[in-house]
């Protein structure tokens, strides 16, 4: 296994791990807020579950980025490519937008989700507005995902 490949794997690791940590945190604080509300208003469970799940997507995007690196470098389905060091670093930095933005935006989105959950507790009819406000945060994770995906798929020549 070449050093380049190891560097690419480190990139994949960061892409899977950091947004996953961020999402876990975001979903956790959302869950705490939602549990508090549900203890008094059990009928809101369905609406709050949607809000709680919103910060979870970054983890999936990060996972997606990691899998794409594995696919591109041939780690999945046999025949791993012997990457040069330059190529390895290229994959590493291609993974970073998703890794970093995923981590931080999931935490931020979790906070927005908590606020939206509190709003829904007081005004159950406004839950869709809360969902929209929370989803706005995700835009930046999506843009980062696109940059990572385009770099991995189109940008890096093997």
């Amino acid at each position: 296994m070449s050093t380049g490949l190891v560097i690419a794997i480190i990139g994949a690791f960061l892409a899977a791990a950091l947004p996953g940590i961020g999402s876990a945190y975001g979903v956790q604080i959302g869950g705490q807020a939602a549990a508090g509300v549900v203890s008094e208003k059990p009928e809101l469970f369905g609406k709050l579950l949607v809000l709680q799940a919103l910060p979870g997507t970054q983890g999936i995007y990060g996972f997606l980025t990691a899998v794409l690196i594995m696919v591109r470098t041939g780690l999945l389905g046999g025949g791993a490519v012997a990457l040069t060091n330059e190529q390895g670093w290229a994959f590493f930095f291609a993974a970073l937008p998703m890794a970093l933005v995923g981590l931080l935006s999931a935490v931020s989105q979790g906070k927005a989700a908590v606020a939206a959950i509190h709003m829904t507790a007081k005004q159950p009819d406004s839950s869709a507005k809360g969902i929209t406000m929370t989803a706005l945060v995700e835009t930046y994770a999506i843009l980062a995902l696109l940059v990572s995906v385009l770099l991995i798929f189109v940008g890096i020549q093997l």
């Binding site: 997507t57 999936i60 995007y61 996972f63 997606l64 899998v67 794409l68 999945l76 389905g77 835009t139 999506i142 843009l143 995902l145 696109l146 995906v149």
Partner: peptide
């Protein structure tokens, strides 16, 4: 207009996760 790139991101996300499950 760039905001519509999320369509691609979401289509890729569900496609690739499905692919990984098959794998």
């Amino acid at each position: 207009i760039l905001s519509y790139s999320r369509i691609l991101a979401l289509a890729l996300a569900s496609g690739v996760v499905g692919m990984v499950m098959n794998l």
